[in-house]
Write a protein that binds this DNA or RNA. Structure first.
Lengths: 329, 329
DNA sequence: CCATGATATGAAATCAATACCACAAATTCT
DNA sequence: AGAATTTGTGGTATTGATTTCATATCATGG
């Protein structure tokens, strides 16, 4: 049933129906007729047809690596809560960390499909930059910081530096690092730099054999821990770029009989639920993921309202939670 | 830029452009002209406008309680991976277990003219049935089983029965139960029935004072454990309807000095990541959440293709993972 | 060499909505 | 009372695409 059929059924003109759904001048008499007809027929206007004319879809595209990652889920929760409050809906694409799929999705979002895009990417290539700048709708990057774009990000550098410093102060003299691909500017590069900075500040030296790059999984953390902890000289602390990796490390320690924190201290970034109830509760930095999502959504909404706004960067705070995994003294 | 402008720019007719994007007859000459013009202008057709005419949106509405639940995230991951493979996009709404919002979202989906709906609800009221049957597109229920609808669900009954039986075989004679609202046919009712069945089969008796109903949270599990474990007579095993609840129980046991499994055995349904690395690894039943999502998506796609298909129910398997929390002998 | 079917083409109709316009009626301001 | 707004109305143009239709061209088999 379309607007013409419905108008006929209600005994009013098409224009009257359109005004009913768009707050135009309308007499009480017609308003009631239309309401009665809606009750009877269940008519509701097609958003596709509307948006052909108005160029407004009330849809926001969200691109993220995967939902089964707690941090992504938390960001998305934040996005969703703000958007639904303002009558926007969420068009979701997961990319499994495949950045070609990110580009594809952006293409898909390009024309008239969405009013704005929120992108949680891990890497950021020249291709990203090219495609994003050809986008006709506002874009917000979450978790990453890049020139010329609206960003909401975390203090990855500070969190990593602070956590590492805590372990050094607790007496670690042979600190190790398990991070992720440095192509990832946030979880990879910034956290790496924070770790290095803390080491340098402490006067300790950085040992190549104590540095590992893992995937974003527990199994990968387990493997890297195994490699790190079966050499002839062992580190006495491990800074992990993510909680998930730290959990893998804890699993390995449990399996190999290493005691945490007595033999080895562990800290990681993220404050995921699991870190709290792990076999050894993990010292971690809480990043405001949900806030990042809601702030990104707010930023997007204001960019939709005023498209010529200058891009800005919002860097969110963090706080450290000390738990048993570094409780050596 | 619209199709007319683009056609002019490419030096062809509107019809030719439309045929290019829809596999109609088209000479090589025009095809090349159009490709060159796309390269230059970056034109791509408006999906809104297309769907006005074709009544196909390539959109699937997904309703779920919350993203921060691991099981929901896993199901959604499964849905997303299949749908995106077939060129569909995912319109996602989270309801925070508020079923009025579920109904609202269905209305929103109607306006968006989605091609199908996947619903992960916990309760299923007459209102649900009424609104769903007025939906003019196929609907798939995930996790719940209801007459007249396409469903993908788990063997909640079998899993609960099996886990309970394991604890009884390990010597439990005073089994307790912490479940969720029985309005929830799957996680509430079916798992409850499975528990009861196992008890009956063992010849044990069911004690009212050992039965608790919790929320879907760790804190709630903690509280119910406290209540259960501070009476004068204590149970020697607790079957928990969800891993999250079990984690709360483990936390309480840790705080109150009760040993697992020596003093009390614990098992729960879900096989969440946390259960594996908890202070005491939990015996659990793995439910194929991601598969449920992908199968639901496949079912939906075939229902979209053949709308007059008879609704069918797909019940997925489970397998038990025995871990330390029941390792009494 | 002509009948037939496959390929190719662009004008015009159509899809379901909103925007604009001209004008009528009711209300408020001088 | 008359002018100036505000409110109310329906017809028509417009939005950006696909679909239909009438017609043209080409190749192939008899």
């Amino acid at each position: 049933m379309n607007i013409s059929d419905f108008a006929k059924a209600a005994g009013v003109s098409k224009s009257a129906v359109s005004r009913y759904f768009n707050d135009g001048y309308l007499s009480k008499d017609k308003r009631e007729k239309i309401e009665a007809a809606i009750e009877k027929t269940g008519y509701s206007p097609s958003i596709s047809a509307r948006s052909v004319r108005t160029r407004i879809t009330k849809l926001v595209g969200v691109i993220l690596p995967k939902l089964s990652s707690e941090s992504c889920a938390r960001v998305t929760d934040g996005i969703s809560s703000v958007l639904s409050e303002y009558g926007y809906e969420l068009l979701l694409v997961t990319t499994s960390n495949n950045y070609h799929k990110e580009i594809e999705s952006l293409e898909l979002f390009r024309q008239n499909r969405v009013d704005g895009v929120i992108l949680l990417s891990t890497v950021f290539t020249d291709l990203h930059r090219a495609v994003l700048s050809k986008m006709h709708v506002p874009v917000i990057l979450v978790g990453q910081k890049h020139k010329g774009f609206n960003c909401v990000c975390h203090d990855d550098y500070g969190a990593a530096r602070n956590l590492t410093r805590i372990m050094l102060e607790k007496g670690s003299v042979k600190p190790a690092y398990i991070g992720v691909d440095p192509e990832d500017k946030a979880a990879g590069e910034a956290r790496y730099n924070g770790f290095i900075k803390a080491i340098e500040e402490s006067g300790n030296k950085i040992r190549k054999e104590f540095m590992e790059i893992a995937e974003f999984t527990m199994d990968s953390g387990y493997e890297k821990a195994k490699h790190l902890l079966s050499g002839k000289e062992l580190p006495d602390s491990i800074f992990c770029a993510t909680d998930t990796i730290a959990l893998g490390v804890i699993m390995y320690c449990r399996d190999s009989g290493l005691r945490i924190p007595e033999d080895i201290m562990i800290a990681s970034v993220g404050d995921s639920k699991v870190g709290r109830i792990a076999a050894v509760p993990i010292t971690t930095a809480h990043l405001h993921y949900k806030t990042a999502g809601s702030e990104a959504a707010k930023m997007l909404l204001s960019a939709i309202k005023q498209p010529d706004l200058i891009p800005r960067v919002l860097q969110l705070d963090y706080y450290v939670i000390e738990r048993q995994s570094t409780n050596k003294i």
